[in-house]
Write a protein that binds this DNA or RNA. Structure first.
Lengths: 152, 152
DNA sequence: CATATTCCGATTGTTATAGTAGGAATATAT
DNA sequence: ATATATTCCTACTATAACAATCGGAATATG
């Protein structure tokens, strides 16, 4: 029940794009890589997904880069996550019940459907604009970097 | 963003226990295995987790088996899922912010926290009793078994 | 004492994901 | 023109999480 790194990186990238391209100028992945500590090569893959989902616009060539396809207020978190990892389905049978091995009646499917709905609702509750401005400083201070293995 | 098979099997198992032990008699995993088409050996592992979470009571020896530790109305889906796969945390930093590689301020953590909360709320919304009685027949009829790869 | 069960740990196999890499296509600036 | 900086596309490899198997100990009953 994890939100994949791919999805989290996509969110971080989008936040970086918003913050960097004040309004409308292009930001290259090299620039974003510096700010976010993410590998440029890996971000390229994510960027393609985000572009195919029409969340960002890419321009090749020198001086090129990416910018939002529409205002950050009109992009919500769910769209970013789905662009990164595909449609939200916590169990395959939510989307494709015909795949299920079980007998005609499955006692749990309605529950999975409901959970899935809940996840989608939360994701669509927030816009990229909110994500880019809000902060939630960690309560607990940093410990030694040896224990820090997770990147959010 | 998947609900692991482990969690789903635990739910199926619990439903089977409720339906089979009308009230208070023991049900063995062999019996449940027949009804659910799950491997007995695999269910043993799940049962131990459910037992440690005080959701079921186990009795060894001939004639032994499992039964609910309390009425199905007082067990909710979230408890079963957590017994199976551990605490719900869609990103590690939700529970252990000190693990995070990122700088002191993480723009997304509040969002992850909120999503996590949403998932927990949905899970705790339903009881095992509801799960055991409700049905949601699939709208789409079964196709050839060749395509059926997923067990819910 | 035979049998049916829970209970425990170790191991193996499988799959999804993370991450790397090469290089083509595109456009700009000098 | 040519060098350069970028997006864009595809394939491959490594790793970690998870599913599933297995052997056998402990426990209790008839």
């Amino acid at each position: 029940m994890k939100l994949s790194r791919r999805a989290r990186y996509a969110l971080r990238m989008m936040v970086a794009i918003v913050r960097h391209s004040n309004g409308s100028h292009m930001v290259s992945l090299s620039q974003i890589a510096e700010k976010t500590n993410l590998s440029r090569r890996y971000m390229e893959q994510l960027a393609i997904g985000l572009k195919n989902a029409s969340l960002i616009v890419g321009v090749s060539g020198k001086g090129g880069g990416y910018m939002l396809a529409r205002p950050a207020e009109e992009i919500n978190v769910g769209q970013i996550v789905e662009a990164a990892i595909g449609p939200i389905n916590i169990v395959e049978c939510v989307v494709q019940p015909e795949l299920c091995i079980q007998s005609e009646e499955c006692e749990c499917r309605w529950l999975y459907h409901r959970i899935n709905q809940g996840v989608c609702e939360v994701l669509n509750e927030f816009s990229l604009a909110e994500l880019a401005t809000k902060y939630w400083p960690r309560a607990i201070p940093l410990k030694s970097s040896a224990t820090a293995r997770v990147s959010c």
